[in-house]
Design a protein around this nucleic acid. Structure first.
Lengths: 155, 155
DNA sequence: GACGAATTATTGGGATGCAAATATTATTAG
DNA sequence: CTAATAATATTTGCATCCCAATAATTCGTC
């Protein structure tokens, strides 16, 4: 019961392309704004909700706290973020944007996610359904249903 | 002309899941075979065609030579790969698998790509078309048509 | 043949990413 | 109240990844 699945390698290549264009986009943003994709991603989250704790930020970025600490070190070093010991819980750290940090967010280019959202908006209902259901199927194939989403390099 | 696009964040989350499960898969392979995804990926390429030069291997892996050098250092350190100065061009290096290296490749688990191929085979024609066309649309949205596919962490 | 340009692999420095171990503080059990 | 436990952020060590600079070799041009 073999089927004609000539498009299979193409699907995989397309997955690669999507992945690459997103990381590529992250690098472009890095050159124009001076900060990396993950750094900008962290700033954007803090711009929406702050103060935030390290663990909360890590959760929203789908990253481990240990990873976020390094990103925060560099953001703090650039004077874009402040770390303050929380008064309620002295184990925790309150993260806040500096004025400079808010500036960077305001001037930063859109992240790839916005590109995706806009592109998806332009699709017809039928096309949108194909993308949506197609991704669902891919996720199911990989048994990724229960997986926590990953960063996508600041998409 | 607003459309109901509630599934948009879900699509993006699904993209994240797909990438994560692939990197996750790479880590599983690391635990069972003792080597990492990119390392196994390099071995598999060398198993198919060798000798190979560093630049050629890098090209086939869609990685920079500088990156591949590090991977080769570790593979050589484990005694899975040999580096020999080429006689025709003394700038170049001939890469070969050792017997131990061939052994590892033979016993290594399938990479994520195989998982995808098998999963795609199980779909009905209608489902397959959705995945295929859905990915096409995503690629077009991102303007990724002209992009050379990237590695996907040894997928 | 000689000198500049291109090619090849490597090194060095920076940024993600993870897991495991650590120090500090909070909470819970007894 | 005290001791064990859990939560929080960090540090350390490792493996990818990139770019830029370097050293060695080859090629091309004069």
């Amino acid at each position: 019961m073999k089927k004609n699945r000539a498009a299979t390698p193409e699907i995989i290549d397309n997955l690669r392309r999507v992945f690459q264009v997103i990381t590529e986009y992250s690098k472009t943003a890095e050159k124009t704004s001076g900060i990396t994709g993950p750094q900008l991603w962290a700033l954007k989250i803090l711009a929406k909700t702050s103060p935030l704790r390290v663990s909360e930020l890590a959760h929203q970025m789908y990253l481990r706290p240990a990873t976020v600490v390094g990103i925060l070190d560099r953001l703090e070093g650039k004077g874009l973020v402040t770390r303050t010991r929380s008064k309620e819980d002295r184990r925790a750290i309150d993260l806040n944007l500096t004025e400079k940090g808010k500036d960077v967010v305001a001037k930063a280019p859109e992240v790839a996610q916005v590109m995706l959202i806009r592109g998806l908006e332009e699709l017809t209902d039928e096309q949108f359904t194909k993308v949506s259901e197609g991704m669902d199927l891919l996720v199911r194939i990989l048994g990724a249903d229960a997986i926590t989403p990953q960063p996508l390099h600041s998409a």
